[in-house]
């Protein structure tokens, strides 16, 4: 963005924090060091190690773990994870975008109530909510019961422990993470801009594609990141609702640590995975900055 000669748009004067600044930053820095930098470091070191027969980590350098990551079995699982997470993200955009936009256009009082409704499920443990979905989707569950008694089907649908159940679970879990950022950017869109588009001859479709979408793109981008990234690594939902029949990359990593007791390989998967996120994030950021120019 060009900022020359315009007050208020110049970059803020860069300043090094003083002693007080560092003191105030200390808790944050410590937290990040302890819970982000150190664990990631340990993971990175382990990923180049070997394991002995008892599953203990042996500190001798090897590339083997990384070679194994690119074994077709794991690439397949990774591909499936990307596909499921991608599908989840698309559904979340399709469902969450209109909801976020709708909430942002309500009067202030109603808006807060609707936001509260979006967030209420967070007050209940994630696992309990997932078990609730099992109760809904299982063969003799709520949904099949309703459909059977309504006469819509004659035999119960097999929903649980299928890819469909996994995607339903993922969409359910991550939908609020799409609604909230979309709401955040939709709320900032001045209604006069939508009116201006109509005034200049744009019907509902053109006004949406030419004005509303570009102005809420930052919200969509944030939502995509917040849904796609965690969805790809999710293991609890695939375990519980997929019945371990449709493992995703998160399940594989979890298995390497807890069942196969192959920490170095699990670590290598984790590192590759983390790098993938970093690249996705940078790509979104780069695109965002480019479209702002």
């Amino acid at each position: 963005m060009q900022t020359i000669g315009l007050p208020g748009t110049a970059a803020p004067h860069a300043r090094k924090p003083g002693l007080w600044g560092w003191l105030l930053l200390a808790p944050m820095v410590l937290w990040l060091l302890l819970f982000v930098v150190v664990p990631t470091g340990i993971l990175a070191v382990y990923s180049f190690c070997q394991r002995d027969d008892l599953g203990r980590v042996v500190f001798s350098f090897t590339w083997d773990n990384y070679v194994r990551v690119f074994d077709p079995i794991y690439l397949n699982i990774l591909g499936r994870s990307v596909a499921y997470a991608g599908l989840t993200t698309i559904i979340c955009v399709a469902v969450g975008y209109p909801v976020g936009w709708y909430i942002a256009r309500r009067p202030a009082g109603l808006r807060n109530l609707l936001l509260l409704l979006v967030m209420i499920p967070f007050w209940t443990s994630f696992l309990i909510r997932t078990y609730a979905w099992i109760a809904i989707l299982k063969n003799e569950g709520l949904l099949n019961g309703l459909l059977l008694s309504a006469g819509a089907i004659t035999a119960p649908l097999e929903l649980l422990y299928t890819p469909v159940a996994v995607v339903i679970g993922l969409v359910y879990a991550y939908l609020p993470f799409m609604i909230l950022p979309v709401y955040g950017s939709a709320e900032k869109v001045d209604n006069a801009l939508v009116e201006a588009a109509h005034d200049l001859g744009a019907g509902p479709v053109r006004a949406f594609s030419e004005v509303i979408i570009p102005l809420t793109l930052p919200g969509i981008a944030a939502g995509v990141l917040l849904v796609f990234v965690p969805a790809i690594g999710m293991f609890a939902i695939t375990d519980l609702m997929g019945g371990a029949r449709v493992p995703m990359i998160g399940n594989v990593i979890q298995n390497q640590f807890f069942k196969a007791r192959n920490w170095p390989f699990g670590a290598a998967l984790g590192v590759v995975f983390t790098l993938m996120f970093v690249f996705t994030y940078l790509a979104v950021q780069w695109h965002g900055r480019r479209s702002q120019r």
Binding site: D190, L193, E195, D199, A202, P214
Partner: peptide, 20 residues
């Protein structure tokens, strides 16, 4: 008639210029 079907244009109080 809908606003986008009229041969009428408006200058808005807030200008309503498209920021993007």
């Amino acid at each position: 008639l809908a606003p986008y079907r009229r041969n009428v244009n408006q200058v808005f109080q807030s200008y309503a210029l498209f920021p993007h």
